[in-house]
Design a protein around this nucleic acid. Sequence first.
DNA 1: GAGCGTTATGTTTCGGCGAATATAACGCTG
DNA 2: CAGCGTTATATTCGCCGAAACATAACGCTC
Lengths: 119, 119
Amino acid sequence: MHELFAENQAFRANGRLWIEGPADRFLGIGRLELLERIQATGSISKAAKEMGMSYKKAWDLVSSMNAQARQPLVGAHAGGAHGGGATLTEAGAAAVAEFQAMQARFAQFLADETTRLYQ
Amino acid sequence: MHELFAENQAFRANGRLWIEGPADRFLGIGRLELLERIQATGSISKAAKEMGMSYKKAWDLVSSMNAQARQPLVGAHAGGAHGGGATLTEAGAAAVAEFQAMQARFAQFLADETTRLYQ
DNA sequence: GAGCGTTATGTTTCGGCGAATATAACGCTG
DNA sequence: CAGCGTTATATTCGCCGAAACATAACGCTC
């Protein structure tokens, strides 16, 4: 394949990976990062702000994930001590861990394919 | 992970794969199909029509690929016997073959990951 | 009970990308 | 030399998905 490319060896394999259900996307790289930041901040709105995403969009994503999973991945409540908050459920933490592992295997796949481009 | 999903086992790993250069995407599943159809029909406009794509978009894609490759992947000429036409160059045929192989490995990766979701 | 920051949800606005349209040139055929 | 189907390229139009905006409710604190 390297024979095909213009001089500099800056070509590489890249891609996107996700898990999808019958109706909708379930988990992808963006949703993963959102879950990670909800875990870190204890808040959907803080997580959204960190990612430069509107609260509404973040909430829609959380809603989609919770609707598709057998158990909700995120637990949230309005009002109270600091206005409310959100936390990852046990199921949410498990989903994060498993999709991180899947992402890691995908990164290795992409690295292998990039290597193969030049061998 | 299966513990997480709602009843029916309709969840699966899915994704997109492509080769990118320093400035732009070089080859993806859409560009691959376009090249295959150019090879089959001998025409950019026929290939575009088969894919429900405007000629302009198809031509832009061909132009992008030709610009990034050391040798053009598609040779085209206007006028003549049947108005003109386009064919895959030797480099184009090689690119198609190699990216098809990469796609096949990716399909296997996705199948493995989908299996893993339920094991 | 007023204030705060959050969750929760609907409505409106906007920008970018693809689609559609337009035009020219090419070179064989009849 | 008129006609055809194609390549080649610029410009305009339209739509849809994302972003922005708006509003309500919640429950703790002071």
